[in-house]
């Protein structure tokens, strides 16, 4: 049976209590994107400043959510700030792979790294690995990432 420590790792609680990049950016020039988790009512707002090549120069987060969605957003913001589109894309794929490969295995058993996951360091984000043992919470962890993807898509459209 997965225990609470698997879900609420210390680093997650740290990001929850001291969220990074909390706030807003002036729009425009920043792009404002909203993400919702219709199941639980969690709501995230990202403010994104893009550099000349479409990379994320600066990022701020507002909105409300549980410790998992909030800390995931906080970690994401730290991980993608100053990164190029290609780097962010790789991070996103690696993160989602971490979330979903376990989703497909019974009881959330540990498995080898997904074959198609890009070889990037997830750093703090690794702490969210335990979330896959609590399937209803996976959407909390991916909310910020999906919202970011939506913002990048809107910016490049």
């Amino acid at each position: 049976m997965p225990g609470l420590e698997d879900l609420y790792r210390e680093i997650i609680l740290d990001h929850y209590r001291n969220p990074r990049n909390r706030g807003e950016l002036e729009t425009p020039p920043a792009l404002r994107v909203e993400g919702f988790n219709p199941l639980c009512g969690d709501e995230i707002v990202l403010y994104l400043d893009f550099d000349a090549n479409g990379g994320v120069a600066d990022i701020r987060i507002s909105g409300q959510g549980c410790s998992i969605s909030q800390s995931s957003a906080s970690m994401m913001s730290a991980a993608v700030k100053g990164k190029s589109v290609a780097e962010i894309d790789e991070l996103t794929r690696a993160f989602k792979a971490m979330m979903s490969i376990h989703e497909n295995t019974l009881e959330g058993a540990e498995t080898a790294e997904p074959i198609d996951a890009p070889d990037v360091k997830l750093g703090d984000l690794e702490a969210l690995r335990g979330v896959v043992k609590f399937p209803v919470r996976i959407k909390c962890a991916t909310l910020a990432w999906n919202t970011l993807a939506q913002g990048i898509e809107e910016a490049s459209a």
């Binding site: 609470l4 549980c66 410790s67 998992i68 609590f134 919470r137 909390c140």
Partner: peptide, 18 residues
């Protein structure tokens, strides 16, 4: 957050909605 509350309550076998 209610999600976090209900997650911990579940460990104590207490079923509430969030």
């Amino acid at each position: 957050h209610p999600h976090d509350i209900s997650q911990v309550l579940d460990q104590h076998a207490v079923c509430v909605r969030a």
